[in-house]
Design a protein around this nucleic acid. Structure first.
Lengths: 215, 215
DNA sequence: GAAAAAAATACATGCATATGGTTTTTTTAC
DNA sequence: GTAAAAAAACCATATGCATGTATTTTTTTC
Protein backbone atom coordinates (compact mmCIF):
# COMPACT_ATOMS: atom_id res chain seq x y z
CA UNK A 1 0.00 0.00 0.00
CA UNK A 2 1.29 3.48 -0.82
CA UNK A 3 2.29 5.77 2.01
CA UNK A 4 -0.70 7.99 2.60
CA UNK A 5 1.48 10.52 4.43
CA UNK A 6 3.57 11.27 1.38
CA UNK A 7 1.98 14.67 0.80
CA UNK A 8 1.88 15.90 4.42
CA UNK A 9 5.16 17.69 4.03
CA UNK A 10 7.26 14.90 5.40
CA UNK A 11 10.35 14.19 3.36
CA UNK A 12 10.67 10.66 4.79
CA UNK A 13 9.52 8.05 2.29
CA UNK A 14 7.73 4.88 3.22
CA UNK A 15 10.76 2.63 3.11
CA UNK A 16 8.83 -0.57 3.65
CA UNK A 17 6.37 0.05 0.85
CA UNK A 18 9.24 1.07 -1.38
CA UNK A 19 11.16 -2.08 -0.67
CA UNK A 20 8.08 -4.13 -1.23
CA UNK A 21 7.53 -2.41 -4.58
CA UNK A 22 11.10 -2.91 -5.64
CA UNK A 23 10.95 -6.55 -4.67
CA UNK A 24 7.76 -7.13 -6.63
CA UNK A 25 9.39 -5.45 -9.60
CA UNK A 26 12.42 -7.71 -9.36
CA UNK A 27 10.23 -10.77 -9.02
CA UNK A 28 8.23 -9.64 -12.04
CA UNK A 29 11.35 -9.42 -14.19
CA UNK A 30 12.59 -12.80 -12.99
CA UNK A 31 9.21 -14.38 -13.67
CA UNK A 32 9.07 -12.96 -17.19
CA UNK A 33 12.57 -14.22 -17.85
CA UNK A 34 11.70 -17.73 -16.62
CA UNK A 35 8.37 -17.92 -18.42
CA UNK A 36 10.08 -16.90 -21.62
CA UNK A 37 12.93 -19.36 -21.16
CA UNK A 38 11.12 -22.39 -19.71
CA UNK A 39 7.41 -21.95 -20.44
CA UNK A 40 4.60 -21.82 -17.91
CA UNK A 41 4.91 -25.17 -16.17
CA UNK A 42 8.68 -25.48 -16.07
CA UNK A 43 9.00 -21.92 -14.76
CA UNK A 44 9.03 -23.01 -11.14
CA UNK A 45 8.97 -20.85 -8.06
CA UNK A 46 12.44 -22.09 -7.29
CA UNK A 47 13.90 -21.09 -10.65
CA UNK A 48 12.23 -17.69 -10.46
CA UNK A 49 13.57 -17.20 -6.95
CA UNK A 50 17.08 -18.04 -8.07
CA UNK A 51 16.96 -15.16 -10.56
CA UNK A 52 16.31 -12.73 -7.72
CA UNK A 53 18.34 -11.71 -4.69
CA UNK A 54 15.68 -13.20 -2.41
CA UNK A 55 14.70 -16.49 -0.90
CA UNK A 56 11.78 -18.70 -1.83
CA UNK A 57 10.06 -17.86 1.44
CA UNK A 58 10.33 -14.14 0.75
CA UNK A 59 8.74 -14.58 -2.64
CA UNK A 60 5.97 -16.66 -1.17
CA UNK A 61 5.32 -13.95 1.37
CA UNK A 62 4.33 -11.64 -1.48
CA UNK A 63 2.74 -14.32 -3.66
CA UNK A 64 1.42 -17.23 -1.58
CA UNK A 65 0.77 -19.41 -4.60
CA UNK A 66 2.23 -19.66 -8.07
CA UNK A 67 -1.13 -18.67 -9.51
CA UNK A 68 -1.06 -15.43 -7.52
CA UNK A 69 2.27 -14.58 -9.10
CA UNK A 70 1.09 -15.49 -12.59
CA UNK A 71 -2.00 -13.31 -12.26
CA UNK A 72 0.21 -10.45 -11.14
CA UNK A 73 2.59 -10.93 -14.07
CA UNK A 74 -0.20 -11.07 -16.61
CA UNK A 75 -1.92 -7.98 -15.22
CA UNK A 76 1.26 -5.96 -15.34
CA UNK A 77 2.13 -7.09 -18.85
CA UNK A 78 -1.35 -6.56 -20.17
CA UNK A 79 -1.57 -3.09 -18.62
CA UNK A 80 1.59 -2.17 -20.48
CA UNK A 81 0.24 -3.72 -23.66
CA UNK A 82 -3.00 -1.74 -23.36
CA UNK A 83 -1.04 1.47 -22.98
CA UNK A 84 1.19 0.80 -25.98
CA UNK A 85 -1.72 -0.38 -28.12
CA UNK A 86 -3.79 2.72 -27.40
CA UNK A 87 -0.84 4.92 -28.25
CA UNK A 88 -0.42 2.92 -31.42
CA UNK A 89 -4.08 3.30 -32.36
CA UNK A 90 -3.84 7.04 -31.80
CA UNK A 91 -0.89 7.23 -34.15
CA UNK A 92 -2.94 5.43 -36.78
CA UNK A 93 -5.84 7.78 -36.20
CA UNK A 94 -3.61 10.77 -36.71
CA UNK A 95 -2.15 9.61 -39.98
CA UNK A 96 -3.66 6.65 -41.76
CA UNK A 97 -1.01 6.64 -44.42
CA UNK A 98 1.37 5.26 -41.79
CA UNK A 99 -0.54 2.02 -41.26
CA UNK A 100 2.11 -0.07 -42.97
CA UNK A 101 4.96 1.42 -40.99
CA UNK A 102 3.03 1.25 -37.74
CA UNK A 103 2.03 -2.37 -38.26
CA UNK A 104 5.67 -3.34 -38.63
CA UNK A 105 6.43 -1.30 -35.54
CA UNK A 106 3.75 -3.12 -33.55
CA UNK A 107 5.27 -6.44 -34.61
CA UNK A 108 8.78 -5.39 -33.67
CA UNK A 109 7.98 -3.68 -30.38
CA UNK A 110 5.14 -5.79 -29.12
CA UNK A 111 4.26 -9.12 -30.72
CA UNK A 112 7.83 -10.24 -31.34
CA UNK A 113 9.00 -9.56 -27.79
CA UNK A 114 9.71 -11.77 -24.75
CA UNK A 115 6.92 -9.99 -22.86
CA UNK A 116 4.34 -10.91 -25.45
CA UNK A 117 5.50 -14.52 -25.50
CA UNK A 118 5.26 -14.52 -21.73
CA UNK A 119 1.63 -13.43 -21.95
CA UNK A 120 1.00 -16.20 -24.44
CA UNK A 121 2.50 -18.78 -22.11
CA UNK A 122 0.14 -17.69 -19.34
CA UNK A 123 -2.82 -17.55 -21.69
CA UNK A 124 -2.22 -20.99 -23.13
CA UNK A 125 -1.92 -22.37 -19.62
CA UNK A 126 -5.11 -20.56 -18.64
CA UNK A 127 -7.07 -22.55 -21.19
CA UNK A 128 -6.72 -25.65 -19.06
CA UNK A 129 -6.33 -24.03 -15.62
CA UNK A 130 -9.84 -22.99 -14.69
CA UNK A 131 -9.19 -20.80 -11.69
CA UNK A 132 -6.36 -18.97 -13.43
CA UNK A 133 -8.61 -18.31 -16.40
CA UNK A 134 -11.37 -16.96 -14.21
CA UNK A 135 -8.99 -14.63 -12.42
CA UNK A 136 -7.50 -13.08 -15.55
CA UNK A 137 -10.79 -12.78 -17.41
CA UNK A 138 -11.71 -9.27 -16.17
CA UNK A 139 -8.27 -7.96 -17.14
CA UNK A 140 -8.71 -9.33 -20.62
CA UNK A 141 -12.27 -8.19 -21.05
CA UNK A 142 -11.08 -4.72 -20.19
CA UNK A 143 -8.31 -4.90 -22.80
CA UNK A 144 -10.80 -6.00 -25.44
CA UNK A 145 -13.31 -3.31 -24.56
CA UNK A 146 -10.86 -0.42 -24.33
CA UNK A 147 -9.10 -1.18 -27.61
CA UNK A 148 -12.36 -1.92 -29.39
CA UNK A 149 -13.85 1.41 -28.36
CA UNK A 150 -10.79 3.24 -29.57
CA UNK A 151 -10.88 1.49 -32.93
CA UNK A 152 -14.53 2.39 -33.38
CA UNK A 153 -13.82 6.02 -32.47
CA UNK A 154 -10.90 6.28 -34.87
CA UNK A 155 -12.76 4.87 -37.84
CA UNK A 156 -16.04 6.60 -37.09
CA UNK A 157 -16.22 8.81 -40.11
CA UNK A 158 -13.92 6.93 -42.40
CA UNK A 159 -14.23 5.52 -45.88
CA UNK A 160 -13.54 2.08 -44.50
CA UNK A 161 -16.31 0.68 -42.32
CA UNK A 162 -15.79 0.32 -38.59
CA UNK A 163 -16.49 -3.41 -38.76
CA UNK A 164 -13.91 -3.90 -41.48
CA UNK A 165 -11.30 -1.88 -39.65
CA UNK A 166 -11.93 -3.89 -36.52
CA UNK A 167 -11.69 -7.19 -38.36
CA UNK A 168 -8.43 -6.23 -40.04
CA UNK A 169 -6.79 -4.93 -36.89
CA UNK A 170 -7.95 -7.89 -34.83
CA UNK A 171 -6.85 -10.26 -37.55
CA UNK A 172 -3.43 -8.64 -37.58
CA UNK A 173 -2.99 -9.16 -33.88
CA UNK A 174 -4.27 -12.73 -33.96
CA UNK A 175 -2.07 -13.49 -36.94
CA UNK A 176 1.01 -12.23 -35.14
CA UNK A 177 0.04 -14.26 -32.09
CA UNK A 178 -0.19 -17.36 -34.25
CA UNK A 179 3.12 -16.47 -35.85
CA UNK A 180 5.03 -16.39 -32.57
CA UNK A 181 3.38 -19.36 -30.86
CA UNK A 182 3.21 -21.95 -33.60
CA UNK A 183 3.82 -21.17 -37.25
CA UNK A 184 6.88 -19.13 -36.47
CA UNK A 185 8.61 -21.82 -34.43
CA UNK A 186 10.43 -23.18 -37.43
CA UNK A 187 10.70 -20.03 -39.49
CA UNK A 188 13.81 -17.94 -39.71
CA UNK A 189 13.58 -14.49 -38.19
CA UNK A 190 14.11 -12.79 -41.52
CA UNK A 191 11.33 -14.80 -43.14
CA UNK A 192 8.92 -13.75 -40.43
CA UNK A 193 10.02 -10.16 -40.91
CA UNK A 194 9.51 -10.37 -44.67
CA UNK A 195 6.11 -11.92 -44.15
CA UNK A 196 5.03 -9.16 -41.77
CA UNK A 197 6.27 -6.53 -44.18
CA UNK A 198 4.23 -8.00 -46.98
CA UNK A 199 1.18 -8.10 -44.76
CA UNK A 200 1.74 -4.51 -43.65
CA UNK A 201 1.99 -3.26 -47.19
CA UNK A 202 -1.13 -5.19 -48.00
CA UNK A 203 -3.03 -3.63 -45.10
CA UNK A 204 -1.96 -0.17 -46.15
CA UNK A 205 -3.35 -0.70 -49.60
CA UNK A 206 -6.58 -2.09 -48.25
CA UNK A 207 -7.08 0.89 -46.01
CA UNK A 208 -6.40 3.20 -48.91
CA UNK A 209 -8.74 1.24 -51.14
CA UNK A 210 -6.04 0.75 -53.70
CA UNK A 211 -6.31 -2.99 -53.59
CA UNK A 212 -6.58 -3.40 -57.36
CA UNK A 213 -2.93 -2.63 -57.85
CA UNK A 214 -1.93 -4.66 -54.85
CA UNK A 215 -3.13 -7.93 -56.30
CA UNK B 1 5.93 -53.90 -38.05
CA UNK B 2 3.42 -55.26 -40.56
CA UNK B 3 3.19 -58.97 -41.10
CA UNK B 4 5.19 -59.64 -44.23
CA UNK B 5 3.44 -63.00 -44.69
CA UNK B 6 0.04 -61.44 -45.17
CA UNK B 7 -0.02 -62.18 -48.91
CA UNK B 8 1.36 -65.73 -48.82
CA UNK B 9 -2.09 -67.24 -48.90
CA UNK B 10 -2.36 -67.70 -45.19
CA UNK B 11 -5.68 -66.56 -43.78
CA UNK B 12 -4.19 -66.09 -40.30
CA UNK B 13 -3.56 -62.43 -39.60
CA UNK B 14 -0.61 -61.10 -37.67
CA UNK B 15 -2.38 -60.89 -34.36
CA UNK B 16 0.50 -59.27 -32.52
CA UNK B 17 1.07 -56.52 -35.02
CA UNK B 18 -2.67 -55.93 -35.16
CA UNK B 19 -2.95 -55.65 -31.43
CA UNK B 20 0.01 -53.36 -31.34
CA UNK B 21 -1.60 -51.12 -33.93
CA UNK B 22 -4.89 -51.04 -32.11
CA UNK B 23 -3.16 -50.23 -28.89
CA UNK B 24 -1.23 -47.34 -30.40
CA UNK B 25 -4.47 -46.06 -31.83
CA UNK B 26 -6.16 -46.23 -28.45
CA UNK B 27 -3.21 -44.51 -26.78
CA UNK B 28 -3.31 -41.84 -29.46
CA UNK B 29 -6.95 -41.07 -28.73
CA UNK B 30 -6.36 -41.03 -24.98
CA UNK B 31 -3.37 -38.72 -25.39
CA UNK B 32 -5.34 -36.30 -27.57
CA UNK B 33 -8.13 -36.28 -25.03
CA UNK B 34 -5.76 -35.55 -22.15
CA UNK B 35 -3.77 -32.91 -24.01
CA UNK B 36 -6.99 -31.17 -24.90
CA UNK B 37 -8.37 -31.39 -21.39
CA UNK B 38 -5.25 -30.76 -19.27
CA UNK B 39 -2.66 -29.17 -21.56
CA UNK B 40 0.81 -30.49 -22.34
CA UNK B 41 2.41 -30.62 -18.92
CA UNK B 42 -0.56 -31.74 -16.85
CA UNK B 43 -1.36 -34.48 -19.39
CA UNK B 44 0.64 -37.10 -17.50
CA UNK B 45 1.46 -40.61 -18.59
CA UNK B 46 -0.68 -41.83 -15.71
CA UNK B 47 -3.76 -39.85 -16.76
CA UNK B 48 -3.34 -40.95 -20.35
CA UNK B 49 -3.00 -44.56 -19.25
CA UNK B 50 -6.16 -44.35 -17.18
CA UNK B 51 -8.10 -43.43 -20.32
CA UNK B 52 -7.02 -46.69 -21.96
CA UNK B 53 -7.62 -50.34 -21.08
CA UNK B 54 -3.90 -50.79 -20.49
CA UNK B 55 -1.32 -50.33 -17.79
CA UNK B 56 1.35 -47.72 -17.53
CA UNK B 57 4.02 -50.31 -18.20
CA UNK B 58 2.30 -51.38 -21.40
CA UNK B 59 2.19 -47.81 -22.63
CA UNK B 60 5.82 -47.29 -21.78
CA UNK B 61 6.70 -50.41 -23.69
CA UNK B 62 5.44 -48.70 -26.84
CA UNK B 63 6.60 -45.20 -25.89
CA UNK B 64 9.57 -45.29 -23.51
CA UNK B 65 9.40 -41.58 -22.74
CA UNK B 66 6.65 -38.99 -22.74
CA UNK B 67 8.46 -37.15 -25.51
CA UNK B 68 8.30 -40.25 -27.71
CA UNK B 69 4.55 -40.32 -27.29
CA UNK B 70 4.18 -36.61 -27.97
CA UNK B 71 6.21 -36.85 -31.16
CA UNK B 72 4.00 -39.74 -32.28
CA UNK B 73 0.81 -37.79 -31.50
CA UNK B 74 2.01 -34.71 -33.34
CA UNK B 75 3.12 -36.67 -36.39
CA UNK B 76 -0.22 -38.43 -36.65
CA UNK B 77 -2.22 -35.24 -36.20
CA UNK B 78 -0.10 -33.28 -38.62
CA UNK B 79 -0.29 -36.00 -41.23
CA UNK B 80 -4.06 -35.82 -41.03
CA UNK B 81 -3.94 -32.05 -41.18
CA UNK B 82 -1.74 -32.14 -44.28
CA UNK B 83 -4.19 -34.46 -45.98
CA UNK B 84 -7.20 -32.31 -45.14
CA UNK B 85 -5.44 -29.09 -46.05
CA UNK B 86 -4.34 -30.38 -49.46
CA UNK B 87 -7.89 -31.54 -50.17
CA UNK B 88 -9.07 -28.13 -49.10
CA UNK B 89 -6.60 -26.34 -51.36
CA UNK B 90 -7.69 -28.50 -54.27
CA UNK B 91 -11.29 -27.52 -53.68
CA UNK B 92 -10.26 -23.89 -53.77
CA UNK B 93 -8.32 -24.47 -56.97
CA UNK B 94 -11.35 -26.05 -58.60
CA UNK B 95 -13.70 -23.22 -57.77
CA UNK B 96 -12.34 -19.97 -56.42
CA UNK B 97 -15.77 -18.55 -55.87
CA UNK B 98 -16.10 -20.91 -52.91
CA UNK B 99 -13.25 -19.37 -50.92
CA UNK B 100 -15.59 -17.87 -48.36
CA UNK B 101 -17.49 -21.08 -47.78
CA UNK B 102 -14.33 -23.15 -47.70
CA UNK B 103 -12.61 -20.83 -45.25
CA UNK B 104 -15.48 -21.24 -42.83
CA UNK B 105 -15.32 -24.98 -43.39
CA UNK B 106 -11.61 -25.04 -42.57
CA UNK B 107 -12.32 -23.18 -39.35
CA UNK B 108 -15.12 -25.52 -38.36
CA UNK B 109 -13.47 -28.79 -39.31
CA UNK B 110 -9.87 -28.06 -38.53
CA UNK B 111 -8.85 -25.00 -36.55
CA UNK B 112 -11.73 -25.10 -34.09
CA UNK B 113 -11.27 -28.75 -33.20
CA UNK B 114 -9.75 -30.60 -30.24
CA UNK B 115 -7.14 -32.10 -32.55
CA UNK B 116 -5.90 -28.70 -33.63
CA UNK B 117 -5.76 -27.47 -30.05
CA UNK B 118 -3.81 -30.60 -29.19
CA UNK B 119 -1.26 -29.75 -31.86
CA UNK B 120 -1.01 -26.24 -30.45
CA UNK B 121 -0.34 -27.58 -26.98
CA UNK B 122 2.54 -29.67 -28.29
CA UNK B 123 3.85 -26.81 -30.39
CA UNK B 124 3.77 -24.29 -27.57
CA UNK B 125 5.58 -26.77 -25.35
CA UNK B 126 8.12 -27.38 -28.12
CA UNK B 127 9.18 -23.73 -28.01
CA UNK B 128 10.85 -24.32 -24.67
CA UNK B 129 11.62 -28.05 -24.97
CA UNK B 130 14.63 -28.18 -27.24
CA UNK B 131 14.80 -31.89 -28.02
CA UNK B 132 11.07 -32.08 -28.69
CA UNK B 133 11.34 -29.14 -31.07
CA UNK B 134 14.23 -30.71 -32.92
CA UNK B 135 12.36 -33.96 -33.32
CA UNK B 136 9.19 -32.45 -34.77
CA UNK B 137 10.95 -29.98 -37.02
CA UNK B 138 11.16 -32.23 -40.10
CA UNK B 139 7.48 -33.06 -39.86
CA UNK B 140 6.64 -29.38 -39.79
CA UNK B 141 9.02 -28.39 -42.52
CA UNK B 142 7.35 -30.99 -44.69
CA UNK B 143 3.91 -29.58 -43.92
CA UNK B 144 5.09 -26.09 -44.84
CA UNK B 145 6.73 -27.22 -48.05
CA UNK B 146 3.90 -29.41 -49.30
CA UNK B 147 1.17 -26.87 -48.69
CA UNK B 148 3.27 -24.03 -50.04
CA UNK B 149 3.95 -25.86 -53.28
CA UNK B 150 0.29 -26.58 -53.71
CA UNK B 151 -0.66 -22.95 -53.16
CA UNK B 152 1.86 -21.83 -55.73
CA UNK B 153 0.57 -24.38 -58.23
CA UNK B 154 -3.05 -23.38 -57.71
CA UNK B 155 -2.45 -19.67 -58.14
CA UNK B 156 0.10 -20.04 -60.92
CA UNK B 157 -1.83 -18.35 -63.67
CA UNK B 158 -4.23 -16.34 -61.61
CA UNK B 159 -5.16 -12.69 -61.49
CA UNK B 160 -4.03 -12.60 -57.89
CA UNK B 161 -0.29 -12.98 -57.41
CA UNK B 162 1.14 -16.15 -55.90
CA UNK B 163 2.79 -14.17 -53.13
CA UNK B 164 -0.46 -12.46 -52.21
CA UNK B 165 -2.40 -15.71 -52.23
CA UNK B 166 0.21 -17.29 -50.01
CA UNK B 167 0.20 -14.38 -47.59
CA UNK B 168 -3.59 -14.39 -47.32
CA UNK B 169 -3.90 -18.12 -46.84
CA UNK B 170 -1.05 -18.25 -44.34
CA UNK B 171 -2.48 -15.25 -42.52
CA UNK B 172 -5.83 -16.99 -42.31
CA UNK B 173 -4.32 -20.04 -40.70
CA UNK B 174 -2.18 -18.04 -38.30
CA UNK B 175 -5.13 -15.87 -37.40
CA UNK B 176 -7.24 -18.91 -36.57
CA UNK B 177 -4.39 -20.29 -34.51
CA UNK B 178 -4.24 -17.06 -32.55
CA UNK B 179 -7.99 -17.12 -32.19
CA UNK B 180 -8.08 -20.53 -30.51
CA UNK B 181 -5.01 -20.18 -28.32
CA UNK B 182 -5.31 -16.69 -26.91
CA UNK B 183 -7.76 -14.13 -28.22
CA UNK B 184 -10.58 -16.62 -28.33
CA UNK B 185 -10.19 -17.76 -24.73
CA UNK B 186 -12.67 -15.21 -23.51
CA UNK B 187 -14.86 -14.91 -26.60
CA UNK B 188 -18.19 -16.56 -26.95
CA UNK B 189 -18.36 -19.27 -29.59
CA UNK B 190 -20.89 -17.34 -31.66
CA UNK B 191 -18.69 -14.23 -31.67
CA UNK B 192 -15.77 -16.25 -32.95
CA UNK B 193 -18.02 -17.73 -35.61
CA UNK B 194 -19.29 -14.29 -36.64
CA UNK B 195 -15.74 -13.01 -36.78
CA UNK B 196 -14.61 -15.86 -39.02
CA UNK B 197 -17.58 -15.35 -41.29
CA UNK B 198 -16.73 -11.71 -41.72
CA UNK B 199 -13.15 -12.60 -42.47
CA UNK B 200 -14.22 -15.27 -44.95
CA UNK B 201 -16.48 -12.86 -46.81
CA UNK B 202 -13.66 -10.38 -46.84
CA UNK B 203 -11.22 -12.90 -48.29
CA UNK B 204 -13.67 -13.85 -50.99
CA UNK B 205 -13.98 -10.26 -52.09
CA UNK B 206 -10.24 -9.82 -52.07
CA UNK B 207 -9.72 -12.83 -54.26
CA UNK B 208 -12.37 -11.61 -56.63
CA UNK B 209 -10.84 -8.13 -56.63
CA UNK B 210 -14.12 -6.62 -55.67
CA UNK B 211 -12.73 -4.97 -52.59
CA UNK B 212 -14.10 -1.54 -53.35
CA UNK B 213 -17.61 -2.60 -52.43
CA UNK B 214 -16.40 -4.55 -49.45
CA UNK B 215 -15.05 -1.54 -47.61
C1' DG C 1 7.61 -76.38 -25.73
C1' DA C 2 11.16 -72.77 -26.04
C1' DA C 3 12.16 -68.08 -27.33
C1' DA C 4 10.58 -63.53 -27.92
C1' DA C 5 7.50 -59.90 -27.35
C1' DA C 6 3.98 -57.56 -24.77
C1' DA C 7 1.83 -56.18 -20.62
C1' DA C 8 1.51 -55.61 -15.72
C1' DT C 9 3.43 -54.51 -11.22
C1' DA C 10 6.24 -52.30 -8.00
C1' DC C 11 9.27 -48.87 -7.01
C1' DA C 12 13.10 -45.27 -7.00
C1' DT C 13 14.20 -40.81 -7.95
C1' DG C 14 13.47 -36.16 -8.44
C1' DC C 15 11.07 -32.00 -8.47
C1' DA C 16 7.40 -28.68 -7.47
C1' DT C 17 4.20 -26.61 -4.45
C1' DA C 18 3.00 -25.13 -0.33
C1' DT C 19 3.25 -24.98 4.91
C1' DG C 20 5.02 -24.13 9.48
C1' DG C 21 7.92 -22.04 12.38
C1' DT C 22 12.18 -18.86 13.00
C1' DT C 23 15.01 -14.89 12.42
C1' DT C 24 15.74 -10.36 10.88
C1' DT C 25 14.31 -5.86 9.65
C1' DT C 26 11.23 -2.06 9.78
C1' DT C 27 7.61 0.63 11.84
C1' DT C 28 5.08 2.48 15.55
C1' DA C 29 4.32 4.07 20.15
C1' DC C 30 5.76 5.54 24.49
C1' DG D 1 15.91 6.71 22.20
C1' DT D 2 14.12 2.47 23.17
C1' DA D 3 10.78 -1.21 23.45
C1' DA D 4 6.76 -3.48 21.49
C1' DA D 5 4.44 -4.75 17.36
C1' DA D 6 4.22 -5.73 12.65
C1' DA D 7 6.01 -6.90 8.43
C1' DA D 8 9.38 -9.04 5.64
C1' DA D 9 12.59 -12.52 4.70
C1' DC D 10 14.45 -16.95 5.53
C1' DC D 11 14.89 -22.00 6.43
C1' DA D 12 13.54 -26.64 6.70
C1' DT D 13 10.41 -29.83 5.39
C1' DA D 14 6.02 -32.44 4.28
C1' DT D 15 3.30 -33.90 0.67
C1' DG D 16 2.18 -35.19 -3.69
C1' DC D 17 2.90 -36.20 -8.32
C1' DA D 18 5.42 -37.37 -12.56
C1' DT D 19 8.85 -39.76 -14.97
C1' DG D 20 11.26 -43.51 -15.86
C1' DT D 21 13.44 -48.16 -14.42
C1' DA D 22 13.68 -52.84 -13.07
C1' DT D 23 11.39 -57.08 -12.41
C1' DT D 24 7.78 -60.39 -13.01
C1' DT D 25 3.89 -62.38 -15.39
C1' DT D 26 1.31 -63.24 -19.46
C1' DT D 27 0.74 -63.78 -24.32
C1' DT D 28 2.29 -64.68 -28.86
C1' DT D 29 5.21 -66.77 -32.25
C1' DC D 30 8.01 -70.22 -34.22
Amino acid sequence: MKNIFQDTGETRKSTQAEKSDRMRKEILLAAISCLHEFGYHRASIKKITEKTRFSQGALQHHFPTKEDLMVFVLERLLAKSVRLTLEWLNEIGEDKSRISELTIKWWTNQANSPEYLTMMEILVAARTEDTLRRRIKPTFDNFAKVTDDRILAIFESDQISQATARTLITASRQMMTGLITSDGLFMREEDKQAYIEHWAMFLQQLFEQRVQEAL
